[in-house]
Structures are given as C-alpha cells and as structure tokens.
Amino acid sequence: MKLKGWKKVTPGAVCTVAGSALEFKTGSWRAFRPRWIEENCIQCLFCWMYCPDMAVNVKDGKMVGFNYDYCKGCGICALECPGKKGKKAIVMEEEGK
C-alpha cells in the first residue's frame, strides 16, 4: 500500500471508509507464529472464539488454519486449545526459525 502524503490525509484522522482496518495488515507484529497440528484437532473452535482478531480461518464450520496477514502471535489460541489426549493442536513457534 502506497503511503499518503500530509496533503491527502483526512482532517482529524477520521476514517471515512468502513472496514478500512482490512488494509492494515498487522501480521508483521508477530514474534511467535501459531502452527496447527491437524491430527490433534478436535474441532472445538475454541481458537476461533478466543482469537482477539479474526485470524483463525474457518470453512464449513471447521478450523482450517490461520490468516497470517492479521495474526499478531498473541498465543491465546494455543493456550486455550484442549488438543487431543493431552497433545495440543496449536503450538507457538518462534518466527524466523
């Protein structure tokens, strides 16, 4: 996204376009990345419910992965994940490793 110059910004930083937060990709804030381990997933959707953003992708009522454009790596999904028989379906891994 090309950054606007000072002559083009809206007075008072008012957002006049609804849903413009979509243009603001926060994935670069992430220090830890959630990894989904499908075989341990019981599809409880706790991760989708607890995600403070909307970074858990769900298709046809099922968790299918993460949206890394917006996931900030907070780790709440991994913390809440009950997993299967004590094995987590979401683990946090350091970025760049």
Partner: peptide, 22 residues
C-alpha cells in the same frame, strides 16, 4: 459511517501533525 480516534503509528503521525501545522 465514520470512525473517530484511530491509532496512528510512526508511518502516519507526522503527516497528521504537518497537516495540523498547515
């Protein structure tokens, strides 16, 4: 519909201040 009071980070804060000065 509009939103007031967004978070403006280092990539835009100076542009808003420059506009205010203008």
């Amino acid at each position: 519909p509009v939103s007031y009071g967004p978070l403006i980070l280092p990539d835009y804060y100076m542009e808003y201040r420059r506009a205010h000065a203008e």
